[in-house]
């Protein structure tokens, strides 16, 4: 009987599934009320808006990262690409305006697709390709931008990202809108089904006629676009571009995916989980500032959260041995 070997995995998978689904929400709510109890003003409309605003760029990065992680890969280059995009936009917007914005976003998408192409066609692990990409884009951003470039006009192209809509910071509304679009794509487009299939069993997907390489390229193109959009949001927020501005968001954006309950091994999870994960990271960031903790504790908190989240969500029955 061949079923038995999967049965124990099944029991665990069911448990991991339940934990993966609900634990993140519980953690989020617990943190929210913990900080609220220490500092009641933390739950005010004002600080919740700050929380949303602070979370919006991480959310956009985490959305792209989620798709790559669902595929079973990882994109380490997103934050560097976002920084590079901010530099390019600071240079392009004054001369080219909105068409310049579209051009730069297109370029970011192409760069993502190129990474996907190298990963899929040359059979190089995404970890390596995007690690190289991270170095490349960081370097390019520094060579091109040197330092902060104040936007000398052309802000109209991104001004729609400032202010609020229905009381919600516009960047956050934009990020959630992006999330909903991709959520629908994952659910109703064959591409979405293929992403999950590849993440759970690449060989099985390949032998079912799934265009694996094409799917990977498409996903990395989307993560490139998300990086570009994050760069755009930085420019809208700071009226400037900076070659390292997004770099510190790489860890939190990956943490957001994992803390939300998507499995780092691929195929399990989704964008709603990433929303919860991003807000959890946001509560942590803002909350620690509100209660007056040294920001140095922030990475320590990420570390604990990530390890805890992975312990809950990883499906050990699938990997057997964890490297």
């Amino acid at each position: 009987m061949t079923i038995a070997s999967t049965e124990r995995g099944a029991g665990k998978a069911v448990l991991a599934n339940i934990l993966g689904r609900f634990a993140p929400i519980v953690v989020f709510a617990a943190l929210l009320f913990l900080f609220g109890a220490i500092q009641p003003s933390f739950l005010s409309a004002y600080s919740l808006r700050v929380l949303a605003g602070e979370s919006s760029i991480i959310l956009v990065l985490a959305i792209g990262q989620t798709l790559v992680i669902l595929l079973g890969g990882i994109d380490l280059s997103m934050a560097a690409l976002a920084s590079l995009t901010s530099v390019l936009l600071a240079l392009a917007l004054p001369v080219a305006g909105a068409p310049g914005l579209i051009g730069v976003l297109l370029l970011a998408t192409l760069i993502g697709a190129a990474q996907g192409y190298i990963h899929a066609r040359a059979q190089i692990p995404s970890f390596i390709v995007t690690l190289a990409g991270m170095g490349l884009f960081s370097g390019a951003a520094l060579v091109i931008g040197h330092t902060t470039i104040i936007l000398q006009g052309g802000y109209e192209a991104v001004s729609w990202l400032s202010g609020r809509i229905l009381g919600v910071p516009r960047p956050f509304a934009f990020a959630v809108g992006l999330l909903l679009v991709l959520l629908a794509a994952l659910r109703w487009l064959p591409l979405g089904r293929h992403i999950y299939a590849i993440g759970l069993g690449e060989l099985g997907a390949l032998l079912s006629g799934v265009k694996v390489a094409r799917t990977k390229i498409a996903v990395f193109a989307v993560s490139g676009l998300c990086a570009g959009l994050a760069g755009m949001m930085f420019v809208a927020r700071t009226h400037s571009g900076n070659p390292t501005i997004a770099d510190s968001l790489l860890l939190p954006s990956i943490a957001a995916v994992v803390v939300g309950g998507s499995a780092i091994t691929g195929g399990v999870g989704g964008l709603m989980r990433t929303l919860v994960g991003t807000l959890t990271i946001g509560v942590l960031r803002v909350g620690m500032a509100v209660v007056g903790l040294d920001p140095a504790y922030e990475p320590i908190a990420y570390g604990i959260l990530i390890a805890g989240a992975v312990a809950f969500t990883i499906d050990r029955s699938k990997t057997g041995i964890v490297k």
Binding site: R193, A197, G201, L203, G204, G209
Partner: peptide
């Protein structure tokens, strides 16, 4: 188990994948 099916997908998703 590694090529014929994708164990983590549902019966429905496996049936229609190709």
């Amino acid at each position: 188990r590694t090529e014929g099916i994708i164990g983590g997908l549902s019966v429905r998703e496996n049936m229609t994948l190709a």
